[in-house]
Design a protein around this nucleic acid. Structure first.
Lengths: 203, 203
DNA sequence: TCCATTATTGACATGTTTGTTAAACTTTAA
DNA sequence: TTAAAGTTTAACAAACATGTCAATAATGGA
Protein backbone atom coordinates (compact mmCIF):
# COMPACT_ATOMS: atom_id res chain seq x y z
CA UNK A 1 0.00 0.00 0.00
CA UNK A 2 3.11 2.27 0.01
CA UNK A 3 2.54 4.45 -3.02
CA UNK A 4 -1.13 3.88 -3.69
CA UNK A 5 -4.02 3.84 -1.27
CA UNK A 6 -6.83 2.74 -3.50
CA UNK A 7 -8.17 0.22 -1.01
CA UNK A 8 -8.49 2.81 1.73
CA UNK A 9 -10.34 5.06 -0.68
CA UNK A 10 -12.63 2.27 -1.74
CA UNK A 11 -13.37 1.60 1.92
CA UNK A 12 -14.06 5.24 2.76
CA UNK A 13 -16.38 5.60 -0.20
CA UNK A 14 -18.24 2.39 0.55
CA UNK A 15 -18.50 3.16 4.25
CA UNK A 16 -19.73 6.67 3.55
CA UNK A 17 -22.43 5.36 1.27
CA UNK A 18 -23.65 2.70 3.67
CA UNK A 19 -23.39 4.85 6.80
CA UNK A 20 -25.38 7.51 5.02
CA UNK A 21 -28.17 5.18 4.03
CA UNK A 22 -28.46 3.09 7.15
CA UNK A 23 -26.93 5.24 9.86
CA UNK A 24 -23.96 4.43 12.04
CA UNK A 25 -25.68 1.89 14.26
CA UNK A 26 -27.76 0.41 11.49
CA UNK A 27 -24.65 -0.47 9.57
CA UNK A 28 -22.54 -3.57 10.15
CA UNK A 29 -18.93 -4.02 9.20
CA UNK A 30 -20.15 -6.80 6.95
CA UNK A 31 -22.36 -4.36 5.06
CA UNK A 32 -19.41 -2.09 4.43
CA UNK A 33 -17.08 -4.91 3.43
CA UNK A 34 -19.63 -6.16 0.94
CA UNK A 35 -20.13 -2.70 -0.56
CA UNK A 36 -16.36 -2.29 -0.86
CA UNK A 37 -15.95 -5.74 -2.36
CA UNK A 38 -13.60 -7.09 0.30
CA UNK A 39 -14.02 -9.46 3.23
CA UNK A 40 -14.94 -8.26 6.65
CA UNK A 41 -11.70 -9.53 8.12
CA UNK A 42 -9.80 -7.52 5.60
CA UNK A 43 -11.81 -4.46 6.48
CA UNK A 44 -10.85 -5.06 10.09
CA UNK A 45 -7.24 -5.09 9.03
CA UNK A 46 -7.46 -1.50 7.77
CA UNK A 47 -9.73 -0.18 10.49
CA UNK A 48 -9.50 -2.21 13.64
CA UNK A 49 -12.87 -1.07 14.98
CA UNK A 50 -16.08 0.28 13.61
CA UNK A 51 -15.66 3.42 15.70
CA UNK A 52 -12.33 4.23 14.12
CA UNK A 53 -13.78 3.68 10.68
CA UNK A 54 -16.72 5.93 11.41
CA UNK A 55 -14.45 8.65 12.70
CA UNK A 56 -12.37 8.45 9.53
CA UNK A 57 -15.46 8.63 7.33
CA UNK A 58 -16.85 11.52 9.28
CA UNK A 59 -13.64 13.52 9.04
CA UNK A 60 -13.41 12.68 5.34
CA UNK A 61 -16.94 13.99 4.87
CA UNK A 62 -16.28 17.27 6.65
CA UNK A 63 -13.13 17.74 4.60
CA UNK A 64 -15.28 17.80 1.50
CA UNK A 65 -16.56 21.27 2.28
CA UNK A 66 -15.36 22.79 5.54
CA UNK A 67 -11.98 23.87 4.11
CA UNK A 68 -13.71 25.55 1.19
CA UNK A 69 -15.78 27.62 3.56
CA UNK A 70 -12.86 28.39 5.81
CA UNK A 71 -10.94 29.66 2.78
CA UNK A 72 -13.61 32.25 1.96
CA UNK A 73 -12.74 34.15 5.09
CA UNK A 74 -9.48 35.32 3.55
CA UNK A 75 -10.59 35.73 -0.03
CA UNK A 76 -13.73 37.80 -0.09
CA UNK A 77 -13.60 41.53 0.20
CA UNK A 78 -16.92 42.89 1.38
CA UNK A 79 -20.06 41.60 3.00
CA UNK A 80 -22.31 41.14 -0.05
CA UNK A 81 -19.53 39.34 -1.88
CA UNK A 82 -18.90 37.15 1.11
CA UNK A 83 -22.56 36.19 1.37
CA UNK A 84 -22.71 35.37 -2.33
CA UNK A 85 -19.69 33.12 -2.19
CA UNK A 86 -20.67 31.51 1.08
CA UNK A 87 -24.14 30.61 -0.12
CA UNK A 88 -22.89 29.29 -3.45
CA UNK A 89 -20.19 27.22 -1.82
CA UNK A 90 -22.54 25.68 0.70
CA UNK A 91 -25.27 24.87 -1.81
CA UNK A 92 -22.86 23.49 -4.41
CA UNK A 93 -21.31 21.25 -1.77
CA UNK A 94 -24.70 19.98 -0.67
CA UNK A 95 -25.82 19.28 -4.23
CA UNK A 96 -22.62 17.34 -4.83
CA UNK A 97 -22.60 15.48 -1.49
CA UNK A 98 -26.22 15.28 -0.35
CA UNK A 99 -25.32 12.98 2.51
CA UNK A 100 -23.52 15.70 4.43
CA UNK A 101 -26.34 17.31 6.45
CA UNK A 102 -27.91 14.13 7.71
CA UNK A 103 -24.48 12.75 8.49
CA UNK A 104 -23.53 15.75 10.54
CA UNK A 105 -26.86 16.12 12.33
CA UNK A 106 -26.84 12.45 13.20
CA UNK A 107 -23.38 12.62 14.73
CA UNK A 108 -24.30 15.86 16.44
CA UNK A 109 -26.92 14.20 18.59
CA UNK A 110 -24.88 11.26 19.75
CA UNK A 111 -21.61 13.16 20.04
CA UNK A 112 -22.27 16.89 20.40
CA UNK A 113 -18.71 17.92 21.16
CA UNK A 114 -17.01 16.31 18.20
CA UNK A 115 -18.49 18.32 15.34
CA UNK A 116 -17.52 21.78 16.54
CA UNK A 117 -14.10 20.51 17.54
CA UNK A 118 -13.46 18.92 14.17
CA UNK A 119 -14.66 22.01 12.34
CA UNK A 120 -12.25 24.14 14.25
CA UNK A 121 -9.47 21.65 13.47
CA UNK A 122 -10.32 22.16 9.81
CA UNK A 123 -9.88 25.89 10.14
CA UNK A 124 -13.45 27.12 10.51
CA UNK A 125 -14.21 29.76 13.11
CA UNK A 126 -17.68 31.27 12.70
CA UNK A 127 -17.28 33.66 15.60
CA UNK A 128 -14.17 35.20 14.07
CA UNK A 129 -15.93 35.66 10.76
CA UNK A 130 -18.76 37.50 12.40
CA UNK A 131 -16.37 39.69 14.37
CA UNK A 132 -14.55 40.68 11.23
CA UNK A 133 -17.67 41.94 9.52
CA UNK A 134 -19.00 43.59 12.61
CA UNK A 135 -15.81 45.63 12.84
CA UNK A 136 -16.02 46.58 9.17
CA UNK A 137 -19.42 48.07 9.87
CA UNK A 138 -21.22 45.89 7.37
CA UNK A 139 -23.91 45.17 9.91
CA UNK A 140 -23.88 48.41 11.84
CA UNK A 141 -27.26 49.77 12.77
CA UNK A 142 -28.89 46.44 12.17
CA UNK A 143 -31.96 46.16 14.33
CA UNK A 144 -31.15 42.68 15.53
CA UNK A 145 -28.47 40.42 16.89
CA UNK A 146 -26.21 39.65 13.89
CA UNK A 147 -26.18 36.03 14.99
CA UNK A 148 -29.85 35.84 14.09
CA UNK A 149 -28.97 36.87 10.56
CA UNK A 150 -26.17 34.36 10.20
CA UNK A 151 -28.32 31.65 11.68
CA UNK A 152 -31.06 32.40 9.18
CA UNK A 153 -28.62 32.31 6.32
CA UNK A 154 -27.23 28.95 7.33
CA UNK A 155 -30.68 27.56 7.94
CA UNK A 156 -31.92 28.60 4.51
CA UNK A 157 -28.90 26.99 2.88
CA UNK A 158 -28.76 23.71 4.73
CA UNK A 159 -32.23 22.72 5.89
CA UNK A 160 -33.59 22.14 2.38
CA UNK A 161 -30.96 19.42 2.00
CA UNK A 162 -31.48 17.86 5.39
CA UNK A 163 -35.16 17.49 4.60
CA UNK A 164 -34.68 16.62 0.96
CA UNK A 165 -36.65 13.34 0.83
CA UNK A 166 -39.69 15.01 2.33
CA UNK A 167 -39.45 18.20 0.31
CA UNK A 168 -39.13 16.39 -2.99
CA UNK A 169 -42.37 14.62 -2.18
CA UNK A 170 -44.54 17.34 -0.67
CA UNK A 171 -43.28 20.44 -2.50
CA UNK A 172 -42.00 19.18 -5.81
CA UNK A 173 -44.41 16.36 -6.54
CA UNK A 174 -41.65 13.78 -6.49
CA UNK A 175 -39.74 15.49 -9.29
CA UNK A 176 -36.12 15.42 -8.15
CA UNK A 177 -34.80 17.54 -10.99
CA UNK A 178 -37.30 20.28 -10.13
CA UNK A 179 -35.97 20.13 -6.60
CA UNK A 180 -32.37 20.48 -7.78
CA UNK A 181 -33.32 23.38 -10.03
CA UNK A 182 -34.90 25.09 -7.06
CA UNK A 183 -31.74 24.63 -5.06
CA UNK A 184 -29.69 26.16 -7.85
CA UNK A 185 -32.11 29.06 -7.90
CA UNK A 186 -31.53 29.56 -4.18
CA UNK A 187 -27.89 30.44 -4.79
CA UNK A 188 -29.19 33.69 -6.25
CA UNK A 189 -32.27 34.09 -4.05
CA UNK A 190 -30.80 33.67 -0.59
CA UNK A 191 -28.35 36.58 -0.90
CA UNK A 192 -31.22 38.72 -2.15
CA UNK A 193 -33.36 37.68 0.78
CA UNK A 194 -30.58 38.41 3.23
CA UNK A 195 -29.98 41.79 1.69
CA UNK A 196 -33.73 42.58 1.91
CA UNK A 197 -33.69 41.75 5.58
CA UNK A 198 -30.76 44.05 6.22
CA UNK A 199 -32.29 46.92 4.30
CA UNK A 200 -35.65 46.67 6.00
CA UNK A 201 -34.49 46.04 9.50
CA UNK A 202 -32.01 48.79 10.08
CA UNK A 203 -33.19 50.38 13.32
CA UNK B 1 -55.20 -1.79 31.60
CA UNK B 2 -58.93 -1.20 30.84
CA UNK B 3 -59.44 2.24 32.28
CA UNK B 4 -55.90 3.46 32.75
CA UNK B 5 -52.92 3.28 30.45
CA UNK B 6 -50.15 4.63 32.62
CA UNK B 7 -47.74 1.84 31.68
CA UNK B 8 -48.13 2.52 27.97
CA UNK B 9 -47.45 6.18 28.63
CA UNK B 10 -44.41 5.38 30.69
CA UNK B 11 -43.15 3.21 27.85
CA UNK B 12 -43.77 5.81 25.16
CA UNK B 13 -42.00 8.47 27.19
CA UNK B 14 -39.05 6.26 28.00
CA UNK B 15 -38.76 5.00 24.44
CA UNK B 16 -38.96 8.53 23.06
CA UNK B 17 -36.18 9.66 25.33
CA UNK B 18 -33.87 6.76 24.52
CA UNK B 19 -34.63 6.70 20.79
CA UNK B 20 -33.88 10.40 20.67
CA UNK B 21 -30.53 10.08 22.36
CA UNK B 22 -29.24 6.91 20.76
CA UNK B 23 -31.21 6.63 17.55
CA UNK B 24 -33.48 3.80 16.50
CA UNK B 25 -30.77 1.28 15.72
CA UNK B 26 -28.53 2.31 18.58
CA UNK B 27 -31.28 1.56 21.06
CA UNK B 28 -32.03 -1.90 22.42
CA UNK B 29 -35.32 -3.04 23.90
CA UNK B 30 -33.37 -3.58 27.09
CA UNK B 31 -32.37 0.08 27.15
CA UNK B 32 -35.97 1.15 26.88
CA UNK B 33 -37.21 -1.33 29.47
CA UNK B 34 -34.61 -0.11 31.90
CA UNK B 35 -35.51 3.54 31.32
CA UNK B 36 -39.20 2.69 31.85
CA UNK B 37 -38.46 0.65 34.95
CA UNK B 38 -39.90 -2.63 33.67
CA UNK B 39 -38.43 -5.88 32.37
CA UNK B 40 -37.70 -6.40 28.73
CA UNK B 41 -40.14 -9.29 28.55
CA UNK B 42 -42.85 -7.07 29.87
CA UNK B 43 -42.02 -4.45 27.31
CA UNK B 44 -42.36 -7.14 24.67
CA UNK B 45 -45.79 -7.88 26.03
CA UNK B 46 -47.00 -4.35 25.23
CA UNK B 47 -45.14 -3.94 21.95
CA UNK B 48 -44.34 -7.24 20.37
CA UNK B 49 -41.53 -5.88 18.23
CA UNK B 50 -39.15 -2.97 18.30
CA UNK B 51 -40.51 -1.80 14.96
CA UNK B 52 -44.03 -1.50 16.29
CA UNK B 53 -42.78 0.39 19.30
CA UNK B 54 -40.80 2.78 17.15
CA UNK B 55 -43.76 3.40 14.93
CA UNK B 56 -45.91 4.19 17.97
CA UNK B 57 -43.31 6.57 19.35
CA UNK B 58 -42.89 8.27 16.02
CA UNK B 59 -46.61 8.80 15.56
CA UNK B 60 -46.87 10.01 19.15
CA UNK B 61 -44.10 12.53 18.45
CA UNK B 62 -45.74 13.90 15.32
CA UNK B 63 -49.03 14.20 17.16
CA UNK B 64 -47.37 16.64 19.51
CA UNK B 65 -47.35 19.36 16.91
CA UNK B 66 -48.67 18.43 13.48
CA UNK B 67 -52.35 18.81 14.50
CA UNK B 68 -51.63 22.26 15.92
CA UNK B 69 -50.20 23.36 12.59
CA UNK B 70 -52.97 21.74 10.60
CA UNK B 71 -55.52 23.62 12.72
CA UNK B 72 -54.03 27.00 11.76
CA UNK B 73 -55.20 26.54 8.21
CA UNK B 74 -58.79 27.08 9.22
CA UNK B 75 -58.28 29.65 11.93
CA UNK B 76 -56.12 32.42 10.58
CA UNK B 77 -57.54 35.13 8.40
CA UNK B 78 -54.81 36.77 6.35
CA UNK B 79 -51.26 36.03 5.33
CA UNK B 80 -49.31 38.06 7.92
CA UNK B 81 -51.44 36.61 10.71
CA UNK B 82 -50.95 33.14 9.38
CA UNK B 83 -47.18 33.57 9.26
CA UNK B 84 -47.14 34.91 12.82
CA UNK B 85 -49.12 32.01 14.20
CA UNK B 86 -47.30 29.42 12.15
CA UNK B 87 -43.88 30.58 13.27
CA UNK B 88 -44.90 30.83 16.91
CA UNK B 89 -46.51 27.42 16.89
CA UNK B 90 -43.52 25.74 15.31
CA UNK B 91 -40.97 27.39 17.56
CA UNK B 92 -42.98 26.82 20.73
CA UNK B 93 -43.33 23.15 19.83
CA UNK B 94 -39.63 22.80 19.19
CA UNK B 95 -38.70 24.49 22.46
CA UNK B 96 -41.03 22.15 24.31
CA UNK B 97 -40.04 18.99 22.45
CA UNK B 98 -36.51 19.53 21.18
CA UNK B 99 -36.20 15.94 20.04
CA UNK B 100 -38.70 16.41 17.20
CA UNK B 101 -36.46 17.60 14.36
CA UNK B 102 -33.75 15.02 14.77
CA UNK B 103 -36.35 12.33 15.18
CA UNK B 104 -38.11 13.27 11.99
CA UNK B 105 -34.96 13.80 9.93
CA UNK B 106 -33.58 10.50 11.09
CA UNK B 107 -36.70 8.61 10.08
CA UNK B 108 -36.83 10.56 6.86
CA UNK B 109 -33.56 9.08 5.66
CA UNK B 110 -34.34 5.47 6.41
CA UNK B 111 -38.01 5.65 5.50
CA UNK B 112 -38.68 8.60 3.20
CA UNK B 113 -42.27 7.77 2.38
CA UNK B 114 -43.58 7.43 5.90
CA UNK B 115 -43.20 11.00 7.13
CA UNK B 116 -45.25 12.73 4.44
CA UNK B 117 -47.84 10.00 4.63
CA UNK B 118 -48.20 10.28 8.38
CA UNK B 119 -48.38 14.06 8.19
CA UNK B 120 -51.19 13.86 5.74
CA UNK B 121 -52.95 11.34 7.98
CA UNK B 122 -52.71 13.93 10.73
CA UNK B 123 -54.42 16.50 8.56
CA UNK B 124 -51.51 18.52 7.21
CA UNK B 125 -51.47 19.50 3.56
CA UNK B 126 -48.82 22.12 2.74
CA UNK B 127 -49.74 22.33 -0.91
CA UNK B 128 -53.34 23.21 -0.09
CA UNK B 129 -52.21 25.93 2.28
CA UNK B 130 -50.07 27.51 -0.37
CA UNK B 131 -52.85 27.33 -2.91
CA UNK B 132 -55.21 29.11 -0.59
CA UNK B 133 -52.93 32.07 -0.14
CA UNK B 134 -51.99 32.23 -3.77
CA UNK B 135 -55.64 32.54 -4.68
CA UNK B 136 -56.14 35.26 -2.08
CA UNK B 137 -53.44 37.27 -3.79
CA UNK B 138 -51.26 37.53 -0.73
CA UNK B 139 -48.24 36.59 -2.80
CA UNK B 140 -49.21 38.10 -6.12
CA UNK B 141 -46.46 39.89 -7.95
CA UNK B 142 -43.81 38.18 -5.89
CA UNK B 143 -40.63 37.94 -7.89
CA UNK B 144 -40.04 34.33 -7.02
CA UNK B 145 -41.58 30.91 -6.72
CA UNK B 146 -43.71 31.06 -3.54
CA UNK B 147 -42.34 27.66 -2.58
CA UNK B 148 -38.96 29.29 -2.11
CA UNK B 149 -40.50 31.61 0.44
CA UNK B 150 -42.25 28.85 2.35
CA UNK B 151 -39.14 26.74 2.27
CA UNK B 152 -37.12 29.60 3.72
CA UNK B 153 -39.66 30.14 6.45
CA UNK B 154 -39.66 26.51 7.49
CA UNK B 155 -35.89 26.34 7.32
CA UNK B 156 -35.46 29.37 9.57
CA UNK B 157 -37.86 27.89 12.10
CA UNK B 158 -36.64 24.32 12.25
CA UNK B 159 -32.97 24.20 11.42
CA UNK B 160 -31.84 26.04 14.56
CA UNK B 161 -33.36 23.18 16.57
CA UNK B 162 -31.97 20.39 14.44
CA UNK B 163 -28.51 21.84 14.91
CA UNK B 164 -29.02 22.89 18.52
CA UNK B 165 -26.06 21.08 20.11
CA UNK B 166 -23.66 22.69 17.69
CA UNK B 167 -25.21 26.14 17.76
CA UNK B 168 -25.22 26.33 21.53
CA UNK B 169 -21.49 25.69 21.43
CA UNK B 170 -20.30 27.78 18.49
CA UNK B 171 -22.74 30.68 18.57
CA UNK B 172 -23.82 30.99 22.18
CA UNK B 173 -20.66 30.02 23.99
CA UNK B 174 -22.31 27.01 25.58
CA UNK B 175 -24.99 29.11 27.27
CA UNK B 176 -28.19 27.18 26.71
CA UNK B 177 -30.48 29.84 28.15
CA UNK B 178 -29.02 32.42 25.76
CA UNK B 179 -29.84 29.99 22.98
CA UNK B 180 -33.43 29.60 24.16
CA UNK B 181 -33.81 33.35 24.47
CA UNK B 182 -32.62 33.71 20.89
CA UNK B 183 -35.20 31.17 19.75
CA UNK B 184 -37.94 33.10 21.55
CA UNK B 185 -36.72 36.24 19.82
CA UNK B 186 -37.06 34.49 16.49
CA UNK B 187 -40.82 34.19 16.92
CA UNK B 188 -40.92 37.93 16.34
CA UNK B 189 -37.97 38.20 13.94
CA UNK B 190 -38.83 35.55 11.38
CA UNK B 191 -42.18 37.10 10.39
CA UNK B 192 -40.39 40.45 10.03
CA UNK B 193 -37.73 38.87 7.87
CA UNK B 194 -40.32 37.18 5.69
CA UNK B 195 -42.23 40.39 5.31
CA UNK B 196 -39.02 42.21 4.34
CA UNK B 197 -38.38 39.66 1.66
CA UNK B 198 -41.86 40.08 0.21
CA UNK B 199 -41.66 43.85 0.20
CA UNK B 200 -38.27 43.96 -1.48
CA UNK B 201 -38.76 41.25 -3.99
CA UNK B 202 -41.99 42.21 -5.66
CA UNK B 203 -41.12 42.14 -9.37
C1' DT C 1 -65.30 -16.59 46.48
C1' DC C 2 -63.85 -17.93 42.09
C1' DC C 3 -63.08 -17.55 37.43
C1' DA C 4 -61.30 -15.09 33.47
C1' DT C 5 -58.69 -11.63 31.87
C1' DT C 6 -54.57 -9.03 32.19
C1' DA C 7 -49.86 -8.55 33.47
C1' DT C 8 -45.11 -10.08 34.78
C1' DT C 9 -41.32 -13.04 34.88
C1' DG C 10 -37.23 -16.31 33.97
C1' DA C 11 -35.49 -19.32 30.70
C1' DC C 12 -34.74 -20.41 26.06
C1' DA C 13 -33.45 -20.66 21.02
C1' DT C 14 -31.80 -18.16 17.37
C1' DG C 15 -29.39 -15.14 14.88
C1' DT C 16 -26.16 -11.23 14.44
C1' DT C 17 -22.14 -8.55 15.29
C1' DT C 18 -17.76 -7.84 16.83
C1' DG C 19 -12.81 -8.19 17.20
C1' DT C 20 -8.96 -11.61 17.31
C1' DT C 21 -5.81 -15.21 15.80
C1' DA C 22 -2.96 -17.95 13.12
C1' DA C 23 -1.97 -19.39 8.79
C1' DA C 24 -1.50 -18.57 3.91
C1' DC C 25 -0.59 -15.67 0.14
C1' DT C 26 1.50 -11.46 -2.33
C1' DT C 27 4.50 -7.76 -3.04
C1' DT C 28 8.72 -5.33 -2.79
C1' DA C 29 13.20 -4.13 -2.37
C1' DA C 30 17.92 -5.49 -0.97
C1' DT D 1 16.47 -15.10 -4.76
C1' DT D 2 15.16 -14.34 -0.52
C1' DA D 3 13.55 -12.25 3.47
C1' DA D 4 10.68 -8.83 5.38
C1' DA D 5 6.65 -6.34 5.26
C1' DG D 6 2.15 -5.99 3.81
C1' DT D 7 -2.35 -8.17 2.79
C1' DT D 8 -6.03 -11.61 2.73
C1' DT D 9 -8.54 -15.29 4.52
C1' DA D 10 -11.28 -18.89 7.32
C1' DA D 11 -12.33 -20.13 11.77
C1' DC D 12 -13.17 -18.90 16.48
C1' DA D 13 -15.03 -17.04 20.94
C1' DA D 14 -17.62 -13.82 23.32
C1' DA D 15 -21.17 -10.65 23.73
C1' DC D 16 -25.47 -8.98 22.64
C1' DA D 17 -30.26 -8.53 20.71
C1' DT D 18 -34.52 -10.36 19.50
C1' DG D 19 -38.79 -12.64 20.00
C1' DT D 20 -41.25 -16.65 22.14
C1' DC D 21 -42.98 -19.75 25.73
C1' DA D 22 -44.80 -21.65 29.68
C1' DA D 23 -45.40 -20.74 34.29
C1' DT D 24 -46.72 -17.65 37.76
C1' DA D 25 -48.91 -13.65 39.80
C1' DA D 26 -52.25 -9.89 40.17
C1' DT D 27 -56.67 -7.84 39.20
C1' DG D 28 -61.41 -7.26 38.87
C1' DG D 29 -66.09 -8.49 37.93
C1' DA D 30 -69.96 -12.10 38.50
Amino acid sequence: METDNTVEMKILDAAGKVFYMKGKDGTSMQDIAKEAGITRTSLNYYYRTKDKLFEAVFRHTLELFVPKIAALMQSSANFPEYVDELVSTIIDSMIEYPQIPVFVLQELTSNPARVPQMMSELGLNPVLTMERFRKEGALSGLGMDPRQLVLSLISMCIFPFAGKPMLVTVMFGGDESAYIAAMEERKKLIPEMISSMIKNMKE
